[in-house]
Amino acid sequence: MRLDFNVLWVDDQPASVVHQIKSIALQMANEGFEFKPRQCTTLAQMEEVISEDVFTDEVDLILVDWDLGNNEHGEDAIERIRQIVQYKDVVFYSGQAAVVELRQKAYEKQLEGVYCAGRADLVDEVIGVFESLIKKVLDLDHTRGIVMGATSDIDHMVNTCLTLAHNKLNDTGKAKFIEEAMRRVMEQVENIARQGEKLKAAPSVEALFNTHMLFTSDHRLRMLASILGMDEFEAHATGIATVKAYREGVVRERNTLGHVVMVPQGKPNSVIDDAGKVVDMVQMRELRKLILNLRADFRALLDSMQT
Results as ranks from 00 to 15, higher is better:
Arg2Met: 12
Leu3Gly: 15
Asp4Arg: 15
Phe5Glu: 09
Asn6Tyr: 09
Val7Asn: 07
Val7Gly: 10
Asp11Phe: 14
Gln13Met: 15
Pro14Phe: 07
Val18Phe: 15
Val18Ala: 15
Lys22Glu: 11
Leu26Thr: 08
Gln27Pro: 01
Met28Tyr: 01
Phe33Tyr: 14
Glu34Asp: 11
Pro37Ser: 10
Thr42Ser: 14
Glu48Lys: 13
Glu48Cys: 03
Ile50Pro: 07
Glu52Ile: 00
Glu52His: 10
Asp53Ile: 02
Val59His: 06
Asp60Phe: 07
Asp60Arg: 08
Leu68Glu: 13
Leu68Met: 14
Asn70Gln: 14
Asp76Val: 01
Ile78Gln: 02
Ile81Thr: 02
Lys88Ser: 14
Val90Trp: 11
Phe92Val: 02
Gly95Arg: 01
Ala98Asp: 05
Ala106Asn: 08
Tyr107Cys: 12
Tyr107Arg: 13
Gly113Asn: 08
Cys116His: 01
Ala117Lys: 02
Ala117Trp: 04
Ala120Phe: 11
Val123Lys: 06
Glu125Leu: 06
Val126Leu: 05
Ile127Arg: 04
Gly128His: 01
Glu131Tyr: 06
Ile134Ala: 05
Lys135Met: 08
Val137Cys: 14
Asp141Gln: 14
His142Arg: 10
Gly145Pro: 00
Ile146Phe: 06
Thr151Ser: 08
Thr160Gly: 09
Leu162Lys: 04
Leu162Trp: 10
Thr163Asn: 14
His166Val: 00
Gly173Gln: 04
Lys174Pro: 12
Lys174Tyr: 10
Ala175Tyr: 06
Ile178Ala: 10
Glu180Ile: 00
Ala181Trp: 02
Val185Met: 14
Met186Gln: 11
Glu187Asn: 15
Glu190Ala: 11
Asn191Ile: 00
Ile192Pro: 03
Ile192Lys: 07
Leu199Lys: 00
Ala207Gln: 04
Phe209Arg: 10
Met213His: 09
Leu214Arg: 05
Thr216Ile: 00
Leu224Val: 01
Met230Glu: 13
Glu232Gln: 15
Glu232Asn: 15
His236Gln: 10
His236Ile: 00
Thr238Ile: 02
Ala241Asp: 07
Thr242His: 05
Gly249Trp: 02
Gly249Cys: 03
Val251Cys: 09
Glu253Phe: 10
Leu257Ala: 07
Val260Pro: 01
Pro264Met: 04
Pro264Thr: 00
Gln265Met: 08
Gly266Ala: 08
Lys267Thr: 03
Lys267Ser: 10
Pro268Phe: 02
Asn269Gln: 12
Ser270Cys: 13
Ser270Met: 11
Val271Asn: 02
Lys277Trp: 03
Val279Asn: 06
Gln283Tyr: 14
Glu286Tyr: 12
Arg288Gln: 09
Leu292Met: 14
Leu292Asn: 14
Asn293Gln: 12
Asn293Val: 12
Arg295Cys: 07
Asp297Tyr: 08
Phe298Cys: 06
Leu301Arg: 04
Leu302Asn: 12
Asp303Gln: 13
Ser304Trp: 01
Ser304Lys: 13
Thr307Cys: 13
Thr307Pro: 04
